[in-house]
Design a protein around this nucleic acid. Structure first.
Lengths: 178, 178
DNA sequence: TGACCCTATATCAATTTGATATATTAACAG
DNA sequence: CTGTTAATATATCAAATTGATATAGGGTCA
């Protein structure tokens, strides 16, 4: 799935500017499972506009720079429905954290500890965002689905890491006592 | 973290060819949290070789094409240790599946069902690979860490989806009866 | 007045993907 | 014995994407 389909999906929930799409991807319900940069979003919106899948409207704002508001068209909705009715590709997961943990014999216990803490902070931040988004419940049944799935997965990660952290701290205390 | 560091990490566990590195990334313990294509692995190995972080040895094989075996050097190990002693970047997770589920009002219940089933199959496949890899326990404490973390997270995902699937099936049965 | 942050769009080199090409050997079917 | 498929192995490249940077208007706070 490319960024064009991603933009159509977000626009299907309501009109938005490129900047707002980026915000959704960073802070919204999408943030748990979507990544996209300005460098892909703006070209995607331009192309969608050329293809007639979205319309653009330039909007003046007071106290802020002007923005271009994109609205999905009927043919855009059709293209979206078609694009998301195929078997989804396998999830992609990349974790520098797990890479470091696998090679933990190359790093000191203190570095391992701060890495675990950082991962815990990241997971809890993500978790808080999901809770926040699902409380303002904008997306109905689909939103509940992804919120519950994200919650389950992230909570399991936190639980596992809390245990690993405690284990490491105990071990470090023993080593310090020697 | 770039593919060069990834290759150094894999080579730190033992010598390998580009093809074998790709296999590790596809089927090994790394597969849960790493992605890399030939198009990035081969150039990375060439560059590492130029920089003196790995050495190459061409090996003839009977019954198979020749291969280039890469071995990490001392300065390669130093570069690796340095590269993985920084705070890890945030995990990256991309899921077409969750994107589809969030926009499920655009797709039919049967398509939702096959998507859920596909995700369950993917998760169970990943889970089986982790169990298999951790039984042959090649990587010691680091391997156990990532295996347990992966297990926790994937199991939570499976459990959540089994529930969602049952819920959907019940709902579809009710709708069919009407 | 300057420093810094938020909103907003845009661009671009560098990285990475995903697909394809090439070659060797084995296995298996027709 | 010929064709097809599959595994091993390396390499390349167009296209997509990232991550950083540039530009610009406005607000806030010292």
């Amino acid at each position: 799935m490319n960024v064009r389909t991603l933009c159509l999906g977000i626009l299907s929930l309501g009109e938005a500017s490129g900047y707002e799409i980026k915000k959704d991807v960073e802070d919204g319900l999408f943030s748990h499972f979507i990544e996209a940069s300005y460098g892909s979003i703006y070209p995607a919106l331009n192309q969608l506009s050329v293809e007639g899948l979205v319309t653009v409207r330039e909007e003046e704002q007071t106290g802020k720079p002007d923005k271009k508001v994109y609205v999905i068209t009927e043919s855009g909705k059709n293209a979206l429905a078609k694009a998301i009715s195929v078997l989804p590709a396998k999830d992609k997961y990349k974790s520098e954290f797990l890479f470091q943990m696998l090679l933990q014999n190359y790093i000191s216990p203190d570095v391992i500890l701060v890495a675990i803490q950082k991962q815990l902070d990241d997971l809890n931040e993500d978790l808080a965002r999901i809770v926040e988004c699902s409380q303002s419940e904008t997306e109905g049944i689909g939103g509940r689905f992804v919120a519950e799935y994200g919650n389950a997965v992230l909570t399991a990660g936190v639980k596992c890491l809390e245990y690993k952290k405690a284990e490491l701290l105990k071990q470090m205390a023993v080593q310090a006592a020697e």
